[in-house]
Amino acid sequence: MPEFYQYLFSGLTNGAIYAIIALGFSMLFAATDLINFAQGEFVMIGALILVTLWPVMGLPLPLAFVLAVLATGILGIVFERLAIRTVKKPDPIVLVIITVGAGIFLRGVAMIIWGKTAKGAPPFSKMPPLEIGGAYLLAQSVWILCIVLVTVLAMHFFYSRTLTGKAMSACAINKRAASLLGIATQKMTLLAFAVSAALGGMAGVIIAPITMNEYEMGAILGLKGFCAAMLGGLGNSWGAVVGGFALGIAEAMAVGYVSSSMKDAVAFLLLLLILYVRPTGILGGKAIARF
C-alpha cells in the first residue's frame, strides 16, 4: 500500500504541473481557437528566470516568483503583437507553424542567455517530506498542489465574477457576437495570450526546484500539457485540470504496475482510447474549427 500512495503522490505532483500547462493551452484555445506550440518554451523561460532571480541574484522568493510570471506574461503580449496579429491570413495551421517557429526562436534565445548547462534551484521551503501511510510527500509537491489549486480557483473567479472574465468567455463562445456587443475582442485576445503565457511561466516557476532547468526542457512539458488539455477537453478549463491530473496519475501508475519503459506509451495509449471513445475529451471541449 505505501507503494500505491507513493505512485499517487508522484502522479499528483506531475499532474498538477501538466494541469497548469494544460490550462494555459486551454484558455488560449477558448479565446482564440489557437494552439500555441511555444507554450512549453514559456514554461522553460519562467523556470530559468526564477533560477536567475532567486538562487543566483538573491531576490526574495515571492518577488522573484511574481517577476518571473509577469515577465513571461509580457513576453506573451509581445509574441501576440509581433508574430500573431501580423499574420495576413490567420489559418489555424499557419498559426501553428508560427508558434512552432516561435518555440525554436525562444529556445535559441534562451540558449544564448542562459547557456547550455542545466541549473538547479532549492525547494521553496526547507521542510522535510511529510510521511503519509509509509509514503513521502515532498514539501515542494505541497507547494505545487496549493499554488495550482489557488490558480485554478482564481481563474474560475475571473471567468465567473469579473466583467473582463465574462467578456472573455463571450469571445470564446462567439467572437463576432461579442464584438457586436462592444467587447474589444482584440484586447481580449491579447489578454488571453498574456494570461496563458503567464500560466506557462508559473508552471516553470513551481517546477524549477524539482527538475533540472535548461533551454531544452520546454518541448516535452509543452507536449504533455497539450496532451492533458486534449484529454480533458480542449477549451474547457476544468477539463484541463482533470486532464492534467489524469495524465500525471496514469503515468505514475503505469510505472508502478506496468513497466517504466512503457510509461509514455501507456499515457499516449490512454489518450488515444479516450479520443476514440469520447472524441471531445473527458469533460467535453469546445467545438473544434476545421483546419
Partner: peptide, 20 residues
Amino acid sequence: DESFSASDTDMTAQLTKIRA
C-alpha cells in the same frame, strides 16, 4: 529493472518500485 527518460521531472515512482 526500471528505466526513465532524460526529460522526466520526477523519478520517485521508479525508485519506489525498486525499493519494494
